[in-house]
């Protein structure tokens, strides 16, 4: 069988095992757009179906059944036979898979402090960027990942409670609206999938993680910089130091499971702050900001 046939057979049969950072996802779907997206984005992460007996998450994406599905086809997400969310239009099946996988990880991976943040690495040192939606985090992340930084994660930082290091969760970077064309024009080598229009986040398209991100996904990174970006139209691109106490508060505020992991989470967050230079970033111009981040002095705090 060719790779494409194996992929199709896996998705339609007992499930296609995919290594996503520290997790194995076994994905089943008969939907063409899931098959195309998986072939495009996850081709380097497929595991042998027979040699992978254990999976962390058994996920199915299926067409909604029911009469109204005839004129308004929808896709539904299942974790092991249970559907935790509403269906979405069939055209959004792939973003639904990515969002659903986020949910699975956030619900179950309490061996990490999970933070809504991008993580990139340079020379073994990690840049952690928590950010509210709209802070321009994904655009920055994509630009950094396409200009020499290794992408660990686009919006889901995994801080190991055991090692205190950042664990990679390489997934396609979700680009929204104007950022899609911006990245496409600046980085002709970027592989960007088809756009999904009118999602809850506007138009969404995904950037395939560059090869080093996948090849080195087992390598953890030591935290060195904690940067809180804020996109400000017409603003002045600059970094300014942030008091550790405030940085800790904001880091914890961006965590999905701080309240669950309790004291271990506090220790891990405090250690991260201690090892990192904590900075606020105001950014308006991508080139200027990339210059600032590339010029960060080594070694963190």
């Amino acid at each position: 069988m060719t790779g494409q046939e194996t992929l199709k057979a896996g998705l339609r049969g007992a499930g296609l095992p995919i290594q996503v950072g520290p997790f194995v996802v076994r994905l089943r779907s008969r939907l063409d757009r899931i098959e195309r997206s998986v072939a495009l984005f996850y081709d380097r992460q497929l595991l042998p179906a027979d040699g992978t007996p254990f999976a962390d998450f058994h996920i199915t994406l299926a067409r909604s059944s029911g009469l109204h599905a005839v004129w308004r086809p929808q896709a539904r997400f299942f974790l092991d036979g249970r559907s935790p969310f509403r269906p979405l239009p069939l055209a959004h099946a792939y973003p639904l898979f990515e969002w659903g996988l986020n949910w699975c990880i956030a619900q179950h991976a309490h061996d990490f402090l999970m933070i809504h943040a991008a993580v990139l690495e340079r020379d073994g040192q990690a840049l952690v960027m928590p950010g509210e939606p709209g802070a321009g985090k994904s655009t920055l992340t994509a630009a950094l990942a396409l200009s020499g930084w290794r992408l660990l994660s686009d919006e889901f930082a995994l801080l190991s409670l055991e090692t205190g290091r950042l664990v990679a969760l390489p997934r396609p970077v979700s680009l929204k609206n104007a950022a899609i064309d911006l990245i496409r024009e600046r980085y002709p080598q970027a592989i960007i999938g088809p756009s999904s229009y009118d999602t809850s986040k506007g138009t969404v398209a995904h950037l395939k993680p560059p090869d080093p991100s996948i090849e080195r996904m087992d390598e953890q990174a030591r935290p060195a910089w904690l940067v809180f970006p804020r996109f400000a139209v017409g603003g002045r691109d600059h970094l300014e130091p942030l008091a550790p106490a405030e940085a800790l508060q904001r880091l914890v505020g961006s965590s999905f499971n701080y309240s669950v992991v309790g004291a271990a989470g506090f220790e891990a967050a405090a250690d991260l702050i201690e090892q990192s230079a904590c900075l606020n970033l105001e950014y308006a111009d991508l080139d200027a900001t990339l210059g600032l981040l590339n010029g960060l002095p080594e070694g963190g705090a």
Partner: peptide
Amino acid sequence: RHLHAARVL
């Protein structure tokens, strides 16, 4: 890992 996470919860 999954058993541990559930125990933490």
